[in-house]
Write a protein that binds this DNA or RNA. Structure first.
Lengths: 118, 118
DNA sequence: TCAATAATTCAAGGATTGTTGAAATATGAA
DNA sequence: TTCATATTTCAACAATCCTTGAATTATTGA
C-alpha cells in the first residue's frame, strides 16, 4: 500500500453509503452480496449503489464477480488489512501510544480465529 | 469514535497535503510544529496550509496552541489511535485475516516503547 | 504608535464528487 | 424471440471541496 492507494482508500471510506457497504461486505464474508441486495438493505437506489460500488472497486477495497444475472461484490480482506497496516505504520511510526488501542484489538483478534475471544 | 467522526477523519486523510501534514506532526511529536514551518516544508502557501490545518482540526486529528506569534500544531495521538481502532474493529469484526498484518505491526510497536524493535 | 512577522479569513473560481431518473446492457426463462 | 430481472451507464444538475491572492487579525519589537 503506497500513499496514492491510501489516499484513494481513505476517500472511498469517507462517504456514509460506502462505509456501510464495506461493513456489510466484511460481515457477509467471502460469499459476498449481490448489488441489488446491498441497495435494498441500505435503501439506496440501484444506480446510486452502483456508483458507490464502482468507487470502492476503484479503491481496490472490494471485488466483483458475475453470478448469473447478479453481480456479487465481496470485501477484499487483503486490501483492508493493508490499509490498516498503512495507517498504523504511517501514523504509529515511533509512537506506540497511538498503536496501543490497536494492539489491544489485534490481541483480541488473533485468538478470535480459534474462538478464544468473545 | 463513532461513524460520524470516522467519516470526517477518513475525509481529512484523503487529501495529499493533509496526509503529509499528519505524518509530519506525528513524527514531530508532542512539541508540534508552527503553521509557517509546515507550509515551508511542504511548499504550500500559508493560506492553503491554514485551510488544511483547519480541516484536520475539525476532524479532531490535530490540536493547536498559540506560542507568541506562531500557532503550534500537534498530532492528537489519542484521536489517531481511536481511528485505527475503529478501522480494525469495524472492518475486522469476526475476520482476523484482516487484522493479521495490523497485529504484526502492533506486535512490533509495543516493544518499540522499550527500544526492543528496530 | 508604527512597522514587521505569523497566521487566518474571505470571496471568487475551478475541480471534483454525489444524486437522480431515463436509457442501455447482460442474462436467463417462457 | 420476447419478456422480465439485475445491473450499469449516461447526462444533467446540485453540492462539496480545493486553490488563489488580497484583506484582516494578532503579537511583538523598535
Amino acid at each position: 500500500m503506497n500513499e496514492r492507494q491510501a489516499l484513494v482508500s481513505f476517500g472511498a471510506l469517507s462517504q456514509q453509503t460506502r462505509l456501510q457497504i464495506v461493513r456489510m461486505l466484511v460481515i457477509a464474508g467471502p460469499t459476498g452480496m449481490p448489488a441489488g441486495v446491498i441497495a435494498e438493505s441500505l435503501e439506496v437506489s440501484p444506480s446510486n449503489v452502483s456508483f458507490h460500488l464502482k468507487e470502492l472497486e476503484r479503491a481496490g477495497l472490494i471485488t466483483q464477480q458475475r453470478e448469473s444475472r447478479s453481480i456479487i461484490y465481496s470485501a477484499d480482506y487483503e486490501a483492508l488489512g493493508s490499509l490498516v497496516r498503512f495507517l498504523m505504520e504511517d501514523c504509529c511510526g515511533g509512537h506506540p501510544e497511538i498503536c496501543a488501542p490497536a494492539a489491544a484489538v489485534a490481541a483480541c483478534c488473533a485468538p478470535l480465529a480459534e474462538g478464544k475471544c468473545q
